[in-house]
Amino acid sequence: MIKAFLGTGLLGSGFIRAMLQRGDTVQVWNRTTARAQALETFGAKVCSEVTDAVSGAGRIHITLKDDASVDEVLEAARTGFAPGAIIIDHTTTSKEGAIRRTAYWKEQGFTYQHAPVFMGPANALEASGFMLVSGDEAVMDGLKPELSVMTGKLLELGPEVGKAAALKLAGNAFLVCFAFSLRESVAVAKSLGMSASDMAGLFQNWNPAAQTDARLKRLSGEDQDQPSWELAMARKDTGLFLEAAQQAGVPLTLLPQIAPVMDAWIEKGFGHYDWTVVGRDLA
Score class of each variant (00 low, 15 high):
Gly43Thr: 08
Thr91Arg: 09
Gln204Cys: 07
Ala124Asn: 04
Thr8Asn: 08
Met19Ser: 10
Ile62Arg: 07
Gly271Asp: 12
Asp237Lys: 03
Tyr112Ala: 04
Gln108Thr: 04
Leu175Cys: 14
Gln247Ser: 14
Met140Gly: 01
Glu137Gly: 05
Gln21Ala: 15
Glu222Phe: 11
Thr32Ala: 04
Glu126Pro: 09
His90Tyr: 13
Ala210Gly: 13
Met131Phe: 04
Ala196Lys: 02
Thr8Lys: 00
Ala210Leu: 13
Ala200Leu: 12
Gln204Asp: 15
Glu96Met: 03
Thr32Ser: 14
Val188Lys: 02
Leu282Thr: 02
Val277Glu: 02
Phe203Gln: 03
Met119Asp: 01
Arg101Met: 07
Ser195Met: 06
Ser197Arg: 02
Val149His: 11
Asp66Gln: 09
Asp274Cys: 05
Arg22Asp: 15
Asp213Phe: 15
Ser48Phe: 05
Phe241Thr: 10
Pro159Leu: 10
Gln108Val: 05
Arg35Tyr: 04
Gly14Val: 05
Gly7Ser: 07
Gly129Cys: 07
Phe110His: 14
Thr79Ala: 15
Leu155Lys: 06
Gln257Ile: 12
Ala165Glu: 12
Asp136Asn: 12
Ala259Met: 07
Glu184Ala: 03
Val149Leu: 09
Leu231Pro: 13
Pro83Ala: 10
Ala115Phe: 06
Ala34Met: 04
Asp198Leu: 05
Asp281Lys: 04
Gly84Trp: 05
Val149Lys: 13
Val50Glu: 09
Ala166Cys: 09
Glu107Asn: 13
Gly58Tyr: 00
Gly9Ile: 08
Phe118Asn: 07
Val176Leu: 06
Ala34Ile: 04
Ala232Trp: 00
Glu126Tyr: 03
Leu242Gly: 03
Glu222Met: 03
Lys106Arg: 13
Phe178Ser: 14
Phe241Pro: 02
Met233Trp: 07
Val186Asn: 01
Glu267Ile: 05
Asp67Lys: 00
Thr93Gly: 07
Gln257Ala: 13
Ile86Val: 13
Thr33Tyr: 01
Leu240Ala: 11
Val54Asp: 11
Gln226Tyr: 08
Gly158Lys: 00
Val250Trp: 08
Thr25Trp: 01
Thr32Ile: 03
Val261Asn: 00
Gln246Cys: 08
Lys65Asn: 13
Gln247Met: 08
Ala232Met: 11
Ile266His: 06
Ala82Ser: 12
Gly249His: 04
Asp281Arg: 02
Phe270Arg: 01
Thr92Asp: 02
Ala76Lys: 11
Thr151Phe: 05
Lys106Gln: 13
Pro83His: 09
Lys190Thr: 15
Met131Leu: 12
Ala259Pro: 03
Thr102Val: 09
Thr212Trp: 14
Ala82Gly: 06
Arg31Ile: 02
Leu254His: 08
Asp141Ala: 14
Arg22Ala: 15
Thr41Trp: 04
Val50Phe: 12
Asn207Cys: 09
Leu154Ser: 07
Arg183Asn: 10
Gly84Tyr: 12
